[in-house]
Amino acid sequence: MKPAKPPVVTCPTCGAAVPWTAESKWKPFCSERCKLIDLGQWATEKYRVPAEEQEPEDGPPQSQ
């Protein structure tokens, strides 16, 4: 019986195929460069996670 092929994912930055193995050091990215490009996008707020605005609660703030 042959060992199963590891799953392959797509690098979110450049689209290269990346095998999902222990040897793929930067997974899901293909390289450190692609990982840092993605991190930079988050740091400059080009990527954002949508959030709902919350109404402030009435009453005095609680101390802990």
Rank of each mutant, 00 (worst) to 15 (best):
I37G: 00
P61T: 08
E32M: 13
Y47I: 00
D58P: 02
D38T: 01
P61R: 09
M1S: 14
V8C: 08
L36Q: 15
A4Q: 13
P12I: 03
L39S: 12
A4N: 10
T44G: 06
E32R: 15
W26V: 02
S63E: 15
W26E: 11
A51T: 04
E32P: 05
G59Y: 03
K27T: 11
A22S: 10
C30P: 05
A43S: 07
Q41S: 14
A17L: 12
W26G: 03
P28I: 01
W20L: 15
P56M: 05
A16C: 13
K27H: 12
E57Y: 02
C11L: 10
E52Q: 04
S24L: 01
S63W: 14
P61Q: 06
T10G: 02
A43C: 00
A51Y: 01
A4E: 14
D38V: 03
C34M: 11
R48F: 09
Y47M: 00
Q54Y: 03
T44V: 10
R33W: 03
P60I: 02
R48A: 07
M1G: 15
A22P: 02
C34D: 14
Y47R: 11
P50N: 10
R33L: 09
K5L: 13
D58N: 07
L36Y: 11
C14V: 06
P61M: 08
W42R: 04
P61E: 09
P56N: 05
E45I: 00
A43E: 12
V8W: 03
E53R: 05
W20V: 15
P12L: 03
P56V: 08
A4S: 13
Q62H: 06
E23H: 12
C30F: 10
E52Y: 03
A17M: 11
V9H: 13
D38G: 00
C14F: 09
G15P: 07
A16T: 11
D58S: 10
D58Y: 07
T21S: 13
E53L: 00
R48Y: 05
